Amino acid sequence: MSFGGPQWPQEPHQQPHQPYGQQPYQQSYGTDTPDWSALAEASAARARRRRWLLIGGGALATAAIGTVIAVAIVSANSGGGATGDKAAGSTTAPELPSDTTQPQPSFSSVAPPPPPDPMDFISTAQKDKAPLTPESLFPGKKLTVGDREYRKGAVASTTDCSAAAQAGLGAVLRKHGCDRVIRATYERDGVAITVGVALFDTKGDALRAKEDVQGGVTPLAGSGVGGFCQAKTVCLRRANSLGRYAYFTQAGYTSGKKVTKSDEVVFKTSDDLGTFAFNQIYARGRIQASAAAAAPGQ
């Protein structure tokens, strides 16, 4: 079969080796015509070489990747010279507890009850059960307030409330159910004062006795303190209440001198002893409240 020229060669034509990419031509007499059979053979040879190169390159790449992975594994296990077990242990994640059934801490959403109020214990005779004596209410032999020192004189306690009062106070105490009056006298620099604490069943009784006050507590002399606030002498009287207690003071000069509004020393003495009585009464409530808080089940 011919097509516009010489026939295709029927047998492969042997050619000396040609550099890769150079196409061989068959020499003929007359004009230069391409040797199509040689060209086909060269193309097939080039295809085979490319395939082997690709296969070989892939194998080399695979081997290189495997080498890199192996090197990375060896480096990770080396641990800077430590043993493989030690290095592996240093990178192991911490173990979580396997037993999650153990009880966990819990917090109550209920607010604890408020501490007992000291006033609750000194407002009624039913709750105010702590022992009460003249010495517990007026302890020691002297009282120091700031830079002022008062010497304690006589003390007394009576259930006959009228006997500890004068000029109308006795009637007021009886009217509101006074149970007892405890008195003590203090003296400093010629000024003496008697403090009388009257007990009632309830806070309301003590408050009404204070509001209805007339006269004052009877001055208590003795134990080194002479008589004071006698008849025809003017003294300073005061009254107050706290809880089921009403307390009264009467202060004046031991010389019998009349007290005037300008006698600051007498007013200061009355302030000091009135504050002391208040604190002593409240301390009873605080002590009883603390005891109740320490034994809530009782």
Results as ranks from 00 to 15, higher is better:
56 G>T: 13
285 G>E: 09
132 L>I: 10
44 A>K: 13
170 G>D: 10
204 G>Q: 10
291 A>P: 01
40 A>L: 12
259 V>Q: 09
114 P>V: 09
172 V>R: 13
2 S>G: 14
217 V>H: 12
263 D>N: 15
243 G>N: 09
227 G>K: 11
151 R>P: 01
32 D>M: 06
118 P>D: 04
281 I>W: 04
254 T>V: 10
197 V>C: 14
284 R>V: 06
127 K>S: 07
202 T>C: 03
115 P>N: 13
114 P>Q: 14
264 E>D: 11
295 A>P: 00
97 P>L: 06
122 I>V: 15
2 S>V: 15
36 W>K: 09
187 E>G: 08
22 Q>W: 00
120 D>N: 12
194 T>Q: 10
204 G>L: 11
140 G>V: 06
263 D>T: 11
259 V>N: 09
47 A>F: 03
236 L>M: 07
274 G>K: 02
214 Q>D: 09
136 S>L: 12
88 A>P: 00
195 V>D: 05
28 S>W: 08
29 Y>K: 04
7 Q>K: 12
5 G>N: 14
12 P>T: 03
197 V>K: 13
205 D>L: 06
116 P>T: 01
26 Q>G: 14
199 L>F: 11
196 G>T: 09
140 G>Y: 08
212 D>F: 01
154 A>Q: 15
181 V>Y: 11
245 Y>E: 11
59 A>Y: 04
71 V>E: 07
99 D>K: 01
128 D>H: 07
81 G>H: 08
91 T>V: 05
195 V>P: 04
134 P>C: 03
207 L>F: 11
218 T>C: 01
